[in-house]
Computed example of a mutant assay.
Amino acid sequence: MFATLDELKGRLDWALDADEERIAAGALMDASELAVSYGREWPEATVPRLVKTLVLKAAARYMRNPNGYIQSRAGDETLAWSDAHGRDAGTVYFTRDEIRLLADLAGRKRGIYSVSVTAWGTKLPQRDAAGHVPVDYAGDPFPMFDDGVSPW
């Protein structure tokens, strides 16, 4: 686990009974497992402080509202759940921003990347000193990326 029960108790504004302590310990375990899923497996001794903060935040959010209610009325007995968190309502969850933070802390960068691909067992064409590669048809070699003067 990335955070302790005592650290979670410090974030809550009431004293936990034995049953709530058991639920809080489970919430910390769930939040830590989710942090690994969205981030990576950090050694517990070197986990970034922000990861610990996010785990405590998610566990405290769950402890304050374990059923995921967004509205409650006593007189009419009306309860309402939000669709904002979908299936996560009433469970330990991270928000989209928290998930992005965990991914960034883990070194998972979002974006588009380019990767050169070749068929199995083939080699990339070898450039000559001037940066030209041979072609399959009869003709002059094709300039590939550099010509010794410019990068293109």
Rank of each mutant, 00 (worst) to 15 (best):
W81K: 14
S82G: 14
S82A: 13
S82I: 09
D83G: 12
A84I: 06
A84P: 01
H85D: 15
G86D: 01
R87V: 14
R87C: 11
R87Y: 14
D88E: 03
D88I: 01
D88K: 03
A89P: 08
A89Q: 11
A89C: 12
A89R: 08
A89V: 12
T91P: 12
T91E: 15
V92F: 06
Y93E: 12
F94R: 02
R96I: 08
E98Q: 06
E98L: 05
E98T: 02
I99N: 05
I99T: 03
R100N: 04
L101D: 06
L101C: 09
L101P: 02
L101M: 08
L101A: 07
L102P: 02
L102T: 02
L102R: 03
A103L: 00
L105T: 05
L105D: 05
G107T: 01
G107F: 03
G107M: 04
R108M: 03
R108D: 00
K109G: 05
K109L: 08
R110G: 04
R110A: 05
I112R: 14
I112F: 10
I112S: 10
Y113C: 11
S114A: 12
S114E: 10
V115A: 13
S116E: 14
V117N: 09
T118D: 09
A119Y: 08
A119L: 09
W120K: 15
W120G: 13
W120P: 13
G121C: 02
G121E: 00
G121S: 03
T122L: 09
K123T: 07
K123Q: 07
K123H: 08
K123D: 00
L124P: 09
P125D: 00
P125M: 00
Q126L: 10
Q126I: 11
Q126H: 07
